[in-house]
Write a protein that binds this DNA or RNA. Structure first.
Lengths: 365, 365
DNA sequence: TTGTATGCGTTATCAT
DNA sequence: ATGATAACGCATACAA
């Protein structure tokens, strides 16, 4: 007597099930499932009855049940340092939008840029709730590539790890840094300071951007002066302001500053304002990231726009492709476009340097 | 002969189940469940064997299965306009941290401050994935209170709706606005402009803050001049800059500006910088929200700190209380503390006005 | 203190 | 084109 009806206690809430719909429509539960999942071969009349019943009963599929059955959740994780950092807040925004268009939900995880938390997030219980992970570490290094060898798809963001077992979306930091530096050189600056360097680091955005900076100097025949390079471990406004203050206190001649990201550059702007230094008159400033702030700082900040939308879209697409088709295939590396956004902080006697363009997509190994 | 072993195909991935653990530990699945869920009455030896098996097999509970069975997900939703707005990014950060401490996961949902999306999020399929919702609408109004009558707990944030069927965490906007205005009056300003008003609106942060502004003026015997109040529909830096520009162009006498939030105030700062107006010398500026930017603007921005941590913590606690105990009980309204943070944008001849303090928690209805 | 058995709401495999 | 039924992995009533 395995009847179709349940005598059950209402479990969760409301709890209209496929069974209820099936009963009302006078069909089997399988047919309801077929309708719900858009299975094509259903007689129009049947479909109509089922849809009527769904409507009338206010039925909605139970996602937990579907997940249990299918072993998928329709959720992807996004691990980032913290949302308080504007760049990552804006990145999260873009990723959520991109995911939405693909019908996927994003679960954000903050690591605080703390090494242990960055590692922990890879093996956390929460991974069970997600079908894959978009992973943007800040504390890990190349030696941690093996940590990415996890039993679910990962898309790596950023410059901390290369060659790990994951698709990787990044940008051409060296070229972009070279391009902004060339922009500064183009408006006649020769004593270009750097704020935010990480001494002794071979990987990471800091190292790559400094490399681009040096390449530009070299190409222009300008000598590299270590006295112009200021450290800043964390890339916050505060550390940028402090680094800038140190440079000013040191008394070295400076006519431009390259903040390795916008937060640093905004901090530097702040310190310059404190000292009543005219920007860009005495010192021009550029940043990197094109966060919204950059457009509203005083003066507005020239910066590198890394194509966040593109990065987000690409990351989601790569991840979904792995999730949907888990067959082995070489990991991709996608290099996003960038663009120099010229604003007041480098305005004036500008010689309008051509903006570098980089191919949107290149596939390695 | 319903054996304990399965011959099954490996379903999802790895897929160590409670059954596997039970087999290895030589106990029943029930015992494993008990151990996993911290049931106290278990013989130490048994517990040890089970824990060993869990460790050895790398077992982790299947959250989907648990959800299906229990009708709870351990996830709470957080609906907000967008993460690109620094205030909401920082709020999300705080909410995630607070939730983490309670062992709860946060799922962020962006509404774009669009009315339909704000309504849709209340009935979305995603609500099935969450046990409750922290809801911060910007486009709804008091007439939408009924929309909050949903079959799951909601904690309302902000000033758009009052008296809806939900706990409500808010702050004393009127008092806080009055306090910053008094601060401006205290440093001798009398022609205080407002940026960001919403004409004809009776509720919402704009209306409340303007009310506080007017109360302060009145108490100080300063006449209210409508010519000093500039509209700005969206509270962005750009709209703040535009509103400020309009005020300046209008030629009214101004010696201070109250940006109804920090983005507006930063935009105003930007416009003032554009026109070479000295801040705070000629015009003092205050904001509202205490986003991180405020501390690094040039000049740094005096503002109202709304106690984000407290708001986040309170919201999570209220929500979890409802989730855990769904028995009817009157809805709470919690009014968070605020604090005036004095910075350069009002520095100088300051007469250091006492900072208003508001009781941390008051329970209504 | 621990084991057995049932069902949570779906999807998938067979049939028909 | 549709129906019956067996899992998915877990929690729990009930037994022991």
């Amino acid at each position: 007597m395995n009847g179709a009806r349940k005598n059950g206690t209402t479990p969760g809430r409301g709890a209209v099930t496929m069974n209820d719909v099936a009963t009302r429509a006078g069909v089997s539960i399988k047919t309801v499932s077929n309708v719900v999942n858009g299975y094509p071969h259903i007689r129009p009349g049947t479909r109509a009855r089922v849809e009527e019943a769904i409507e009338a009963l206010g039925y909605r599929v139970n996602i937990s049940a579907r997940n249990l059955r299918q072993g998928r959740t329709g959720i992807v994780g996004l691990a980032l340092p913290e949302l308080s950092l504007p760049y990552f807040a804006e990145l999260a925004d873009s990723v959520i939008r991109a995911a939405e268009q693909r019908g996927v939900i994003v679960l954000i995880e903050q690591t605080g840029a703390v090494r242990e938390r960055e590692l922990e997030v890879l093996t956390s219980e929460r991974r069970q709730l997600t079908d894959g992970l978009i992973y943007s570490p800040l504390a890990l290094g190349p030696e941690d590539g093996a940590a990415l060898d996890v039993p679910y798809p990962v898309v790596l963001l950023g410059e901390r790890i290369f060659g790990g077992p994951a698709d990787h979306v990044t940008m051409n930091n060296v070229e972009a840094a070279r391009a902004v530096t060339e922009h500064l050189l183009g408006i006649g600056r020769r004593r270009i300071a750097v704020v935010g360097a990480h001494e002794g680091e071979a990987v990471g955005s800091a190292a790559l951007r400094v490399r681009g900076y040096r390449e530009a100097l070299e190409a222009a025949g300008v000598a590299y002066d270590p006295a112009l390079v200021a450290e800043a471990g964390l890339w916050h406004r505060s550390t940028g302001a402090e680094a800038m203050a140190r440079l000013l206190d040191a008394g070295v001649e400076i006519d431009a500053v390259f903040g390795l990201n916008d937060a640093l550059a905004l901090g530097a702007l702040h310190a310059l304002h404190d000292r009543r230094v005219d920007v860009p008159g005495e010192i021009a400033v550029v940043g990197f990231d094109d966060i919204e702030d950059a457009a509203y700082a005083s003066p507005t900040l020239t910066t590198v726009s890394p194509g966040r939308e593109q990065i987000a879209r690409t990351a989601i697409d790569l991840l979904l492709a792995r999730i949907q088709d888990s067959s082995e295939r070489p990991y991709e590396r996608v290099i996003a476009d960038f663009e120099i956004v010229e604003r007041e902080s480098t305005a004036g006697q500008s010689a309008s340097v051509p903006v570098a363009a980089v191919p949107g997509r290149s596939i390695l190994a």
